[in-house]
Write a protein that binds this DNA or RNA. Sequence first.
DNA 1: TCCTAACTTGGACTTTGTCTAAGTCAACAC
DNA 2: GTGTTGACTTAGACAAAGTCCAAGTTAGGA
Lengths: 139, 139
Amino acid sequence: MSDLLERLRGRGWRLTSQRRVVAEVLDGEHVHLTADEVHARAVERLPEISRATVYNTLGELVGLGEVLEVATDGRAKRYDPNAHHAHQHLVCYGCGAIRDVHPQGDPLAALPASERFGFTLSGAEITYRGLCPDCSTGS
Amino acid sequence: MSDLLERLRGRGWRLTSQRRVVAEVLDGEHVHLTADEVHARAVERLPEISRATVYNTLGELVGLGEVLEVATDGRAKRYDPNAHHAHQHLVCYGCGAIRDVHPQGDPLAALPASERFGFTLSGAEITYRGLCPDCSTGS
DNA sequence: TCCTAACTTGGACTTTGTCTAAGTCAACAC
DNA sequence: GTGTTGACTTAGACAAAGTCCAAGTTAGGA
């Protein structure tokens, strides 16, 4: 993730303590955090960091392509730092757990020209839905 | 869509004018409306209908499987009455236009067992992203 | 060390959606 | 037809998620 900070500095970013902390939080083990969760973890390291800055920083990271926005549930967006490896998401409709998954093949290949309506396609987001092992045994 | 009303009555629904109006609105040509857009169109036909009733009715239709919730942008959810024909969505990142599309094959087949992490899969939602003809010429 | 544009802050504001208590009415029984 | 009743609707308060702004702070170049 220090790679990330260097990349950002190379793009003219001012390297503030707030941005550093947000980057560190995203680099942790919890990889699909909401903005509020990022803020909560950031506050532990830098108590005076504001919500607005967290939103600003996340937005900038998304704009730079360093972080992905994931909207799996229509509630708060989640932020996925694994932006440099193409992947999709598998979501449990019991507990909401999210896993990164790697389907085979190119998802765009499944959409024939007749179904593209003149669009210039750039990508596809797939959300697989199911029950995770914990939730399916508990039923 | 009167089919829909009959189906709902068969399931014990009280057939109120409000529910009728919401069903009529969803049956129109604009098929990916937000809750507020549904409300705005419903008010044209039944001025006293409340936002709460629109939200309630949409939620019930989703619960009954008659309407799909679509979250393509992390903003307001959209409601898709085309629930009885499996389909996916193609979204323009210029103007936000949404089209129903029908990819070939079973999307679940692309996810090998080693990438399922013990989940019991039930479906997949695919959002194809691209530029629509209008937005790509205008650039 | 100084300067300044970029960054951050707190709080007001907006959008989207949920909840509640009180009033209304669709559908059934007669 | 009329009455009854529980399901439905309403207005408005509330909550969650996110945006915006004016004022203050600061990273990094000169």
